[in-house]
Amino acid sequence: MKTPLLQFTKKGIYCKEADVYLDPWRPVDKALITHGHADHSRWGHKQYITYNKNVPIIKHRLGDINVSGVDHNESILVNNVKFSFHPAGHIPGSSQIRVEHKGEVWVFTGDYKTEDDGISTPFQPIECNTFITECTFGLPAFKWIPQDQVMNDINQWWAENKADGQTSIVFAYSLGKAQRVLKHLDPSIGKIYTHGAIENMTNVLRELIDFPETELITKDTKKEAIKGSLVLAPPSAHGSTWIRKVVPYVTASASGWMTFRGARRRRAIDKGFVLSDHCDWNGLLESIEATGAEKVICTHGYTDIFSRYLKTLGYDARTEETQYEGEVPEGEIAKNDLLNVD
């Protein structure tokens, strides 16, 4: 049997023909990186190659690394294997990676979503033979509400809180979700404040994207000034002493997990907005169909259930273990809020 074009090894997804890894989780010589979340772009590789708009993001996150950028749809050849990056729509700078060798095409999605969020280059399905897909929300219970409707709800919630003399805190990951929410906030309601982790990342992205004005909360920020404003903070700030500055406040989380009533209650958060940077059930199924792939490999999320269903639809589907964080949203968030689980 011939070696498959991409293999799942202890270090990550490996292309033997080119001696290259995709989003490896252990240090390697040459790594192709889909996007800037911590479970996909890790420390310690000798060489990073990624989409050029992702370069400043991972440099900000990983510091002094050896990284080169390529444009979307631009091919690079490594030992006769053709690699190219294509929009994944997940977060700013995110890509899928297409791998072609001797007429065979594989696509690795990293993380992706089908809805245009207004800050990431929208997802484009790429024709392939084998499609390696995430399925974080691979259950028919997940159906996203259109973004403008969710953002209307968020803005309305903010306005109501302000009228009640309360500050609105939205917990969102510092890379991706925070900027997505920020982009669509209505600055006519009030001022937008940020936590340091979000302010820094947003400033990196301001080079590429136009955002409403924000102000970092520092020790000199006056408590009275914050009252009635909207504060963007990473989930780890929930329950920290930092938050005392913002009293009186109401909290919200914007995540796909907020679909479940139980999840909202468990997090002791006042309000849950269903807003995800991953595909919902239909998004996954439509994307897979659009690639025309015969083989589908499910990497993280509800992999067993989702691949079983794909088989009933006639796909040659299977699951592979990776270290991308799909099913552990509750446990992992506290450790690293850059780690994208949603």
Binding site: L139, P140, A141, F142, K143, T259, F260, R261, G262, Y302, I305, R308, Y309, T312
Partner: peptide, 28 residues
């Protein structure tokens, strides 16, 4: 919802509430 029964059951185990599962899986 046009899904096989086993898939409904799996979803129910994860959602943890029957009425909530039904409300989520049927077309909106």
């Amino acid at each position: 919802a046009n899904i096989p029964l086993w898939l409904f059951e799996e979803s129910y185990h994860i959602v943890g509430d029957l009425a909530e599962t039904i409300a989520l899986v049927v077309p909106n």
